[in-house]
Each structure stands twice: as C-alpha cells, then as structure tokens.
Write a protein that binds this DNA or RNA. Structure first.
Lengths: 256, 256
DNA sequence: TTGCGTTCGTGTGCGACGTACACTATCCTC
DNA sequence: GAGGATAGTGTACGTCGCACACGAACGCAA
C-alpha cells in the first residue's frame, strides 16, 4: 500500500495501469499463443484495469474481449514497469498467463484473433515478445514441479496425450515407461471406464486428474511432476473395448 | 500494455499504484524483517510510484526512505490488487523483497525503523502480514534452487556462517558434512587466503562466492543449492594460522 | 604448561530416484 | 489375414539424498 501520510504531489502524475494475458493452448502437437491484430503487428489480449475489478478479473475480461472462453486457468506472471515500454504514456502492466484446453479452443469466438505457434511468432507490438518469452519460461518451470499441465487437456485424456503436452512444452522427448511409472507413483491420475478410439492403432484408456492439493494462483510450489522416474508399477489391466468414440470398460483401479 | 484504441472512459478512474518492500536480513541466528511504525501498528517500507522511475527504483527509494542501505539485492514478488486491501482508495501495490547482509545492517541509518524477527512479528498494517508471509515462502523456495542465500552474507564468510543462513531460513538443521560436500560439488564457493578468528574454538577459513551464472532479477530458476548431498571431496588443506581477526594463509585451491 | 571447552574439518554406506532401453497387445484397413 | 499404427508393460545401473562420529586447532583458566 501507499504511505498516505507522506504522499507527495508529483506521485499523482497519471500512470496507466493495465493487464496483459499470454494465453497458451496446444494445437496439433505444438504450443500456441492467442494474439490479436494491432496496426501492422500483433498484440496480446490486454486492457486497462478498471477501478472496480481485481487484477485477475481484468485479465479474464481482456481475454474474453479478444475471444470467448470458459474454464480458464490463470496466474499472475510479472509486472512490467519500464519507463519507455509504451512510448505515449507511462504504463505499468500486470502480465498474466493462462492455460486453456484444446477442446475449449473450439468454443472461442475468434474475432480478429488468431492462434500462433510459439515456435513461429509474428511481429509483436511493444514488449509483448519479451512477455511471451518470460511466460514460456515460467510455464516450462512450473510444468516441472506442479500439475498445471493438466489445464491444457480436457477432463478425460489418454496418457499419451498427457505425455505429448510435456514433450511439446519442454521441447524434448520423454520415455513412455518412465513417464507412466512417475505418474503412477505420484497418484495424480486415475483410470476411467472409458477409452478413446483413435483413427488408427489400439484404443487408449482415458484417465482423469485427481488433485492432491489444489494448485493455487498465488500459491507456492507443490507436489511435483518433473520429467521421469522409476518406481515399479504400471499395471493398467487389459480392458474390454467396444465400438464408438468413448466406450465403457471394466476397469481395475490403479494401485496406490 | 493497453489497448489505447478501445480505452474506455471509466478506466481512467484514478487507481493508486505503489511499491512495498520486504527487507530480510539475518541477525543473531534469526531471520528479521525491516518495519516502520505506522499509527498503532507497523508497516513495510512503501511509497507511491513516481511517473519517472521504474518499479525497482521506486522500491529502492521506499527502502532508503525508511533506512539507508547499500548493495541491496531486490526482486519483484507479486502485485496485490484486491479491491478492499486499502480502505480509502483503490490501490495496487507491486511488492518486492530484498536481501541485505547483516554487515550492511550496521550501515542502515535507522530512524523509526526496527528489525523484527519473522518468528515474532508485531501487528501489521493492512495486508502487510500476508505480503511478508508470501515473501518468506518465496525466499524459502528460491533458497533451494538458486544462490540468493549468499546475498545475506558479507563477501567473505565461513562455511558455518553459510550453513546457518540455510538453517535459519529453512527452519531445520542441516548436516555439516553433506552441506559441504554439496557446496564443493556445485563449485560455487572458493577458499580465500584468510581465516576468521572467532571468540572461541578453531579458526575457520573464509570463502567467497563464485557465480556460475548471475542470478537475474526477472530470471528463471538456475543452478541450485538444495539441502544436502554426497560427492567425495572436501579437502581444504590444513592452513597456517596467525594472529589477528582475518589472517593470510597459504591456501590450496579447492578442486574443480 | 596443561587440561578443558568450543568450533572446524573430514568419509562411508545405504536406500531412493532418474534414466536408458525393446517387445507384445490390440485395433483398423486393405 | 497381413501390415501399419498406437497402447501398454520391467529391468538394470548410476547418481543423489541422507544418516552418522571423531580428530584437529584454537582460547582460556587453573
């Protein structure tokens, strides 16, 4: 807060305060960011903060302003306050980053907005490129010691889909057996009675995320889900499969 | 940044923007926080942001306003923007935390300010208690995977002093041999030609910190210095000691 | 000078975890 | 029913975390 008693006159020089949101999703095995056109370049969803809304409400509104979405996981990233980052007027921006499931993407009412792969971003306005870079760094780190990764998937997913999320974001391949052993040891996924029948190949069992502790927005580090690990398990039983896209199956609960 | 083209009138409702600083130091084997009196309670060093200064400059000024200091390591913590956190007017605060060496403490020109042990904090103004709690959480985490801990020590220090920093902040005892083996493996300390002659007991060799990679303010996680570890080393040679407080010695550089 | 209190400095062993690595099972399509 | 594609499954080895005890070097007091 401010020391009102010592508040000085020149501190009242207007400073613009806004929010920006780096919205991540995964499309066709690549990490994408939501951008809107602006002049000859592209910009992050952003807007000024209203005096009657909190920071994360402002961030969600800025996001919704560019493209409708639901069930968006959001976290504050960093506050950028360099003097010259916005030429016109001194502007402080509280940057956020958001994760949305690929399925929620279809629900987005994209106006002028577009999804851009982070591997090939277009020209960006102001310091937005730097903000995205930082968000990406944060996402990579957070993926390693929290369970945020699940926010990029629908409620039910296959283990291969989950693994692909990690591979895409971390930018390296992960051993299938080590990944599954680690998951089982952590006890953060539970098998469902359903399977996903893919275009080709053997159907995969669907799992759901079981939180050990809720990932807080302001929260401190938690459980984990690093990269790989041993532990002896992985005994998802052979299942009866039937026709259709998602099919009930007689399951055997994963140990632990 | 802000979408100036879509800027709406009510967004111009004045929002106060300030900085707060949680200043940590270690005094007599306990972590302390710098506080200033305010009404019937205590407050963190804080002030409004001027339009011609960056966030960290504002934070350093807020600190200097309460107590002079030099060589202060500072990092942005979190931006608090709840609607009712400051009753009078909507106020957004960019909180920071700072680490100062115990030796720099004596250089502080304390006016009304006081150092309070984090284990026994007084009544605090507004949401400052929450900010301190969060800063403490961040400090504990950061201590585990970065080298910020060295910011709490003078340039030359003994390994026991360094270990005590970790013990005090993490709140648990650390095995001396494991701690030193880990340090040696990381190669982040180098012995100097000097010793510290303490009040009693055998003199200890002084070390200095050697950065592998500079700990950035906005930076991502880095090297490490977790808790304990093995590795076979620790062969700081027997040294010739002489009289005085800090004494030259024929050194043998640590391996690696 | 010697004995005592205090702090410094030094290795080993074991359990847990990270990681490398290959084959069978089940589905679809032709 | 053969071939292509994806799912699902164990073992072995190296590294790391962690528990644990004693001699060395100093100051001080008797």
């Amino acid at each position: 807060m401010l020391d009102t008693k010592r508040a000085e006159p020149h501190t009242m020089t207007p400073i613009r305060v806004g929010v920006e949101v780096v919205v991540f999703t995964i499309r066709s095995d690549a990490l994408h960011v939501l951008l809107a056109p602006r002049d000859m370049a592209w910009r992050l969803p952003s807007d000024a903060i209203r005096s009657d809304e909190t920071l994360d409400v402002a961030a969600r509104r800025a996001l919704a302003d560019v493209a409708g979405a639901s069930e968006v996981w959001l976290e504050q990233l960093f506050t950028f306050g360099d003097l010259q980052r916005v030429p016109a007027q001194r502007t402080i921006s509280i940057a956020h980053y958001a994760l949305v499931a690929a399925e929620a993407v279809s629900e987005l009412a994209e106006r002028d907005a577009r999804w851009w792969p982070v591997a090939a971003l277009p020209l960006l306005v102001l310091d937005h490129r730097r903000i995205i870079d930082y968000a990406l760094t944060r996402l990579r780190n957070k993926l390693s010691y929290t369970t945020v990764g699940f926010q990029l998937l629908p409620q039910r997913f296959t283990l291969s889909e989950l693994q692909r999320v990690y591979e895409v974001i971390l930018g390296r391949e992960i051993d299938k057996r080590n990944f599954r052993r680690k998951l089982d040891a952590l006890g953060i996924v539970k098998p469902t009675r359903e399977q996903r029948v893919s275009v080709s190949g053997r159907p995969a069992q669907l799992f759901r995320f079981v939180a050990t502790e809720a990932p807080e927005t302001v929260g401190a580090p938690e459980p984990i889900l690093a990269a790989q690990a041993p532990v002896h398990l992985a005994r998802i039983s052979p299942v009866v499969r039937r026709r259709g896209r998602i099919v009930p199956v007689t399951p055997i609960e994963s140990a632990r």
